[in-house]
Amino acid sequence: MRHKIIGTTMPVLEIGLEAGEKVIGVPDQLSWMSGDISLTTTMAGGGSSGLFGIMSRAVSGGGLFMTEFHAERGPGNVAFAAKLPGNIMATEVGGAGYLVHRHGFICGTPGIEVASAFQQTLGGAVFGGEGFVLQKLSGSGTAWIELGGEIVTYELQPGQVLLVHPGHVGLFEASVAFELTTMRGVKNALFGGDGLFLAKLSGPGKVWLQTLTAPGLAHALSHYLPSRQG
Rank of each mutant, 00 (worst) to 15 (best):
S138M: 07
P75I: 07
F118I: 08
G139W: 01
A71M: 10
I24L: 12
V161K: 15
K136N: 08
G16H: 12
L209E: 04
L163F: 15
S31C: 11
R228Q: 06
G7M: 06
R73I: 06
G195T: 09
E72Y: 09
G128E: 06
G124N: 10
A214M: 07
A220T: 07
M89S: 13
G86S: 05
T91I: 15
E155V: 12
S34E: 14
L122P: 01
A19W: 05
Y224T: 09
A115R: 13
I6L: 14
Q120T: 12
G139D: 02
P226L: 02
I151C: 14
E68P: 00
L190H: 11
K187R: 11
P75S: 15
G86P: 01
E68S: 15
G47A: 06
T121E: 10
K200S: 13
P226K: 03
M89Y: 04
F178P: 02
E14N: 07
T211Y: 01
N87P: 00
G46M: 06
V152D: 12
A143Q: 06
F132A: 04
A81M: 12
G159Y: 13
V176P: 00
G35E: 05
G86Q: 01
L156N: 00
H101Q: 13
P85G: 12
L221P: 01
S38Y: 05
I15A: 06
I145H: 06
K22T: 06
L84A: 10
E113P: 01
G124I: 03
V114G: 01
G76V: 02
M66I: 08
T42N: 04
I112W: 00
S48R: 09
M43F: 07
L163R: 14
M10H: 10
T182M: 13
D194K: 11
V169G: 05
V93I: 15
T91Q: 14
P204C: 08
G108V: 04
L209Q: 06
E155R: 14
G141T: 09
E68D: 12
T181G: 07
E146I: 04
L147D: 00
G61P: 03
L99K: 14
E18L: 11
V100I: 12
E21G: 08
Q160A: 14
A189C: 05
P158K: 14
L217D: 00
A174S: 15
E92T: 11
F197G: 00
G45V: 03
E150R: 15
T142Q: 12
E173H: 11
I145W: 05
G50F: 11
G104N: 06
T67F: 03
L134S: 04
K206I: 06
L122W: 10
S60A: 15
G97W: 04
L122D: 09
A96E: 14
V78C: 12
G95F: 10
W32I: 03
P110Q: 08
A58W: 02
Q157N: 11
M66E: 01
V152N: 05
T121Y: 15
F65N: 10
G7Y: 05
I106D: 00
K22Y: 03
G50R: 12
E21H: 13
A79S: 15
